[in-house]
Write a protein that binds this DNA or RNA. Structure first.
Lengths: 221, 221
DNA sequence: TAGATTGTTAATCGATTAACAATC
DNA sequence: TAGATTGTTAATCGATTAACAATC
């Protein structure tokens, strides 16, 4: 099997393929060619074939790709064929939003615990999951094989909590705190930095303004 | 001035520079060299100099960069020197989380309206902002110069609402719905696809497992 | 068999890194 | 002036696209 190292660029695109294939599947489309998929997705057919070939030949010459098969194979690559146990650290607005987001459960991500330091909410429930005290987190980690921790806590606390989680055997950190965590290379990491996303959006508005101004100037001449 | 087209790769990195410079600034650091910044951020000094030079010479040979000046200049590039008016479409969990996130206000993003279709919550307030009916959105857009709309609504409704917003003059869409919006090239767009981020995380766990298994096999020999 | 479409190699493009002259 | 560090050009690297032989 492939010793090829899958580039981060390819991994970034996989969930989007998965989403499009899921839609095709629910529309009862049986087969699709890289050309047709490329037109729907707005990418090149070449890229699709190149990407998929990183994982082995999923298609068939003269036919294309079987939608259901390809959907399932990409699901396996993404690790969606087995359950992941998730805990949420920080039951603020974002933490509660994650807990309430049913799509995650559907994809095999089971939220098995929510933790917070605020005594006012410890003991209450979100979606049937009790909010526990941070003081019982270590014991909880010993009792449960937790895969993923979503960090929705203030940036000041995030590095220490992340270090503790690593010590207690976490396998992946989904970081919503606006700071960079320095995790060992054995622990997977994904950052969701909403403030940065919003700044990029603002930056893009500015770029567009300038582009339009330039075009106006050109029109004048 | 520069006719250079700023690549999307550079724009993606700018908010992170901005964050690090903000931290240096609050630690009263006056000047910094690309070398020192590169060590803190885990990127090459070459890349920092290359990136910053897209926008003109912010540094000084033999000295480095003035932290406050550079911070403000990048802020301007990101469009943070002027206020942005933001509305939130969809007052569910994510919409409410955004409304409650005070960091945005600090950076000049003013949330001036929240909209929803649910009669049970229309009229109530989040952070002092009244939740309005979607039926008054068109009039609201006429009365207010809205820059950015955060879409935190189900994916089925997102394309139509986005099209309406474009018609009514929105300048940028911050899309949280798990679907691709096809906006005209004059409207800026940023997608936050949480489910995709979580899948990538799961994929990375898998990749690490395989890597570790391979190393174990090697150790056996 | 003829047509279609993949898998894969080669060519191109763009982004990152290295190197160094310019200059504070 | 000597040392430091930028701005910028050149070299390298990796990712994307094009092309086409293999094959269903």
């Amino acid at each position: 099997m492939s010793d090829r190292k899958i580039s981060i660029a390819v991994i970034k695109r996989l969930p989007r393929y998965y989403r499009y294939l899921g839609e095709l599947l629910s529309n009862d489309v049986v087969r699709i060619s890289s050309k047709e998929l490329s037109e729907r997705m707005g990418v090149t057919a070449s890229q699709i074939r190149q990407d998929l070939n990183n994982f082995g030949g999923f298609g068939q010459q003269g036919y294309g790709y079987n939608v259901e098969y390809l959907y399932n194979e990409i699901g396996k690559i993404l690790g969606l064929d087995k359950k992941n146990k998730v805990i949420i650290i920080g039951a603020g607005n974002v933490g509660q939003a994650l807990a309430n987001y049913s799509d995650f459960q559907k994809r095999g991500f089971d939220i098995i615990g929510i933790f917070d330091v605020n005594p006012a909410i410890i003991g209450t429930s979100v979606r049937g999951i009790e909010i526990r005290s941070m003081s019982v987190l270590e014991q909880f980690m010993k009792d449960n094989k937790v895969d993923i921790a979503a960090l929705t806590i203030p940036k000041e606390k995030a590095p220490q909590v992340a270090a503790d989680l690593v010590k207690w055997g976490i396998r992946a950190v989904w970081n919503f705190a606006p700071t960079d965590l320095h995790l060992p290379p054995t622990v997977a990491q994904e950052n969701v930095h909403l403030a940065e996303s919003l700044m990029r959006l603002s930056c893009k508005i500015k770029t567009m303004d300038e582009k339009m101004n330039k075009e106006k100037e050109k029109d004048k001449k």
